[in-house]
Amino acid sequence: MLIGYMRVSKADGSQSTDLQRDALLSAGVEPGNLYEDHASGKKDDRPELAACLKGMRDGDTLLVWKLDRLGRNLHHLVNTVHDLTARGIGLRVLTGQGAAVDTTTAAGKLVFGIFAALAEFERELISERTKAGMASARARGHKGGRPFTMTPAKIRLAMSAMGQSETHIGKLAKELGVSRQTLYRYVSPTGEPRPQAQRILKPTNG
């Protein structure tokens, strides 16, 4: 069975799913098998997507207009498709840069395998940058007294990452070895340094 999922970012009616609906219907999805959310892709609360994924069965195929309609970020996308694949469910992307993804075919699986590798590579890069930054900070080091939970290197990485919409705050906090609360005490959700962070960064900037 073909199942279609649509999403637009605004819930006030200023965006329409007409284009996505037409594409999904043309691809063979029955009108009764369409699911639609009106929410930002960054939000976890997408009830229609949850219902769509829960109701799918072995042998079904999920169709989306573009890849960004399905995933909040690359990690979420990879995890979602891995879960579908484990349940015997395929994914087809109709247009955009992900149009080569069709996990019901060998070629499509290969393309998505590259996506998964990129997600792992991204995670490893963040980890390596964090460790290198922390080592560099220790080499310049704070002598005496209680060490800061957040080093200048950690703060700069947090500022850069939190300024990007696709950043998952929980994962970033874990990579930095701090809690979400600590992260927000030093850096705002938009990536701006808070007063505590400015006090730590000031000696290295001066």
Score class of each variant (00 low, 15 high):
33 N>K: 14
49 L>N: 02
48 E>P: 00
30 E>R: 12
16 S>H: 04
34 L>Q: 06
17 T>N: 11
16 S>C: 06
48 E>N: 11
41 G>N: 00
20 Q>W: 02
13 G>C: 13
18 D>F: 12
27 A>Y: 05
11 A>L: 15
20 Q>A: 06
21 R>Y: 09
17 T>Y: 14
32 G>N: 04
33 N>E: 12
25 L>P: 04
47 P>A: 15
37 D>W: 01
24 L>H: 03
39 A>L: 02
14 S>V: 12
24 L>G: 03
21 R>M: 14
31 P>F: 05
41 G>Q: 00
17 T>S: 14
10 K>Q: 13
42 K>H: 05
42 K>L: 06
11 A>H: 13
21 R>L: 10
32 G>I: 05
42 K>E: 09
10 K>G: 03
30 E>L: 10
45 D>Q: 12
38 H>P: 00
34 L>G: 05
22 D>S: 15
40 S>C: 05
38 H>M: 09
35 Y>F: 15
30 E>Y: 01
29 V>M: 01
26 S>Q: 08
43 K>V: 12
42 K>G: 01
21 R>E: 13
34 L>M: 07
19 L>V: 10
13 G>H: 12
42 K>N: 06
10 K>R: 15
19 L>S: 10
17 T>R: 08
27 A>C: 07
31 P>R: 10
25 L>G: 08
46 R>E: 01
46 R>Y: 11
28 G>D: 00
13 G>L: 11
41 G>E: 01
11 A>P: 03
27 A>K: 05
41 G>W: 04
25 L>Y: 14
21 R>C: 10
49 L>D: 05
34 L>Y: 05
35 Y>H: 09
13 G>K: 11
41 G>Y: 02
28 G>Q: 01
44 D>V: 07
25 L>C: 10
40 S>Y: 06
35 Y>N: 05
46 R>S: 09
14 S>K: 12
33 N>W: 11
43 K>M: 10
23 A>I: 00
12 D>P: 08
32 G>A: 09
13 G>A: 08
